[in-house]
């Protein structure tokens, strides 16, 4: 069956939400990774860190009533949860680099079988910059990539990334609408096949070798 963009993103976000443990300190990329918060299981509370200097990001604030001095890294107004605090950019990145973030979820342009990640630059076409992504992926205890399996039909999971890298050998897990892969020392391992996909579909849309070791 053909999934809409919204359905695809919801499937991924719901699966990402299963990754968190109660009390985890989490950093989420803008867009799809942030959507996972909506689907957090009951009894699981996480502490969201935002690179611009917020520890304990709460809910979105609408524009008319919000305190314009509290934003997330996308510049959108947010609230601060009880127990949270504000950080300057040095303290924020010390927290990331120093290994104090439990789980980071980011999107990607490409990921490869060696756990390399490319998500900041398409030379000559699109160069938004790395922002805080390079610092974040180096320091986090666990790095999960949440992304659509393909871009306009072209595989994004590759044997070797072709775009400029964000980090080398850092990705632990890839979650797409079709599958969950782990990156082991010997390469990609298929752990889950989505009910919206099949092994044939995954083979056809993944440009990397993988072994199969299904969790369920």
């Amino acid at each position: 069956m053909e999934l809409s963009k919204e359905q695809t993103q919801e499937i991924i976000a719901r699966r990402v939400a299963q990754e968190f443990h109660d009390g985890d300190v989490v950093t989420l990329g803008i867009g799809l990774p942030t959507k996972a918060v909506k689907y957090l299981p009951q009894n699981i509370n996480i502490i969201i860190q935002s690179e611009n200097g917020v520890l304990g990001v709460g809910r979105y604030q609408d524009d008319t009533t919000r305190d314009c001095h509290i934003t997330n890294a996308g510049g959108l107004g947010v609230t601060l949860n009880a127990g949270g605090c504000f950080l300057d950019s040095l303290a924020s990145f010390s927290m990331m680099r120093g290994g104090h973030i439990d789980i980071t979820v980011l999107g990607a342009l490409q990921v490869d079988a060696a756990g390399n990640l490319a998500n900041w630059c398409i030379p000559g076409k699109y160069t938004p910059g790395m922002g805080g992504a390079m610092d974040l992926v180096v320091g986090t205890k666990r790095l999960i990539i949440a992304m659509e399996h393909t871009a306009k039909g072209a595989p994004k999971i590759l044997q070797k990334c072709t775009l400029p890298l964000t980090a080398v050998h850092k990705v632990n897990r890839i979650i797409t609408e079709k599958a969950v892969f782990d990156i082991a020392s010997d390469g990609l391992v298929l752990k889950e096949i989505s009910s919206y996909s099949s092994i044939e579909d995954i083979r056809a849309s993944t440009a990397a070798d993988f072994r199969i070791e299904l969790l369920r």
Binding site: G129, M130, M134
Partner: peptide, 27 residues
């Protein structure tokens, strides 16, 4: 560390009209 939110920076950069030295934010 980031120019993506300003399309004008991206345009000037792609046209070689501004020099951009992108750096990891924490660095």
């Amino acid at each position: 560390s980031h120019i993506g939110t300003n399309p004008e920076t991206v345009r000037l950069y792609n046209e070689g009209k501004i020099e951009i030295d992108l750096q990891p934010q924490g660095s």
